[in-house]
Design a protein around this nucleic acid. Structure first.
Lengths: 195, 195
DNA sequence: CGTCTATTTGAATGTACTCAAAAGCGGTGG
DNA sequence: CCACCGCTTTTGAGTACATTCAAATAGACG
């Protein structure tokens, strides 16, 4: 298992010396998931932050009518967790599933706390990661409040061009907050327009 | 101006000695806003984090049709900023307006960076603040995807009981993602049900 | 008290949903 | 390698939730 990707991810925001890199990577636990396998199920306590080395994850919750709602996707070089459950160490509502075979690096909550003590720079690292996450989350919220389904879809295509072609449409529909049926109709209407 | 509230807010997550407290408060700039006055307007670069001592702020954006959409409210003991603009130091889309007379403490972006250098514990503090923010933001996003307007309203009432009675209905409607007219109808239907 | 803004109410409309069924596609086993 | 099965996507008809526009009423502030 190579740590190149994750070390490069971290080097974007903080500088680690060799000893620190070694200490950090010693805490990581490699994990692979098969297609459709779950990393986390609702009701469980989230005990790890997951870094995606390859593959693609999907975080979603299930409502009282049994419908799924996609909160986020994670592709290589992204971090993923049920943040609420990770923070509180209480059972969460999120399911995290592999959309394709995945290779992950897991950092346990307890190791993460130790890391903060031993190498305080990691406070900075995760602060920045979470800040960026929050900023884009707020933008998505505003988009959901102000844009039509069609505009949200075009936003999505522009922002995540690589995801559009590799993720089942029903999951994109769910991410956008519409039904697969409506998504299909909207999409074919869009194609007609663009001729 | 008393710093009790903000020091107590910080003490929830990190411990500061007297010198650190003094250094921190020396960076704060008191600011008052009259009702309807703006702290930030879209197109401006957000240069401060604002801590609300008293009063109430509203963060919103304006869409291409001129409709407003409320991203968040901030009441005493809360932090507020246009996070995207604060991080990137590029012009943002958020307007921040006082709903009532406000007393704020401002921490400039540059002082915040100095603070991170001088007292690294503040990295931890803001990491935790932003983490909690992100977790509740994600929950709100899921609520918007999975709940009806009525359920979202009841959630809002349960979570922010103090806001419900002091904020104009049209702003709550906007926060929930519905029109003031529909909000009014929904609300009177709810009252009938509860008899 | 008058003006301006917020809220309510009503009628017509539209966007997105539900349910049902057909068509397409991909993976698996014979 | 093909055929089948299951899942995803498409299509259509009827419906519901929420919107727009307009007008009346109620509240708040100077």
């Amino acid at each position: 298992m190579s740590f190149d990707l994750i070390l490069h991810n971290i080097a974007k925001h903080i500088q680690l010396n060799d000893a620190e890199q070694a200490r950090f990577t010693s805490m990581l636990q490699a994990r692979t998931l098969k297609r459709k396998q779950y990393l986390l199920q609702e009701g469980e306590v989230c005990r790890h932050s997951a870094f995606v080395v390859s593959g693609c994850l999907r975080g979603f919750s299930v409502d009282k009518n049994g419908y799924e709602h996609v909160l986020n996707f994670a592709t290589p070089d992204w971090w993923m967790a049920d943040l609420y459950s990770l923070i509180t160490q209480k059972p969460g509502v999120l399911n995290i599933e592999a959309l394709e075979p995945c290779s992950l690096l897991l950092l346990s909550k307890s190791d993460q706390e130790i890391l903060y003590q031993e190498i305080p720079k990691f406070e900075r690292f995760f602060r920045i990661i979470v800040e960026n996450s929050l900023a884009s989350n707020q933008q998505r919220l505003l988009d959901n409040l102000s844009l039509s389904a069609e505009e949200r879809y075009q936003n999505f295509c522009a922002r995540y061009p690589s995801l559009v072609d590799c993720i089942p449409q029903k999951h994109i529909a769910s991410y956008l907050g519409i039904t697969p049926e409506f998504f299909s109709k909207m999409r074919s209407a869009l194609l007609k327009k663009q001729l």
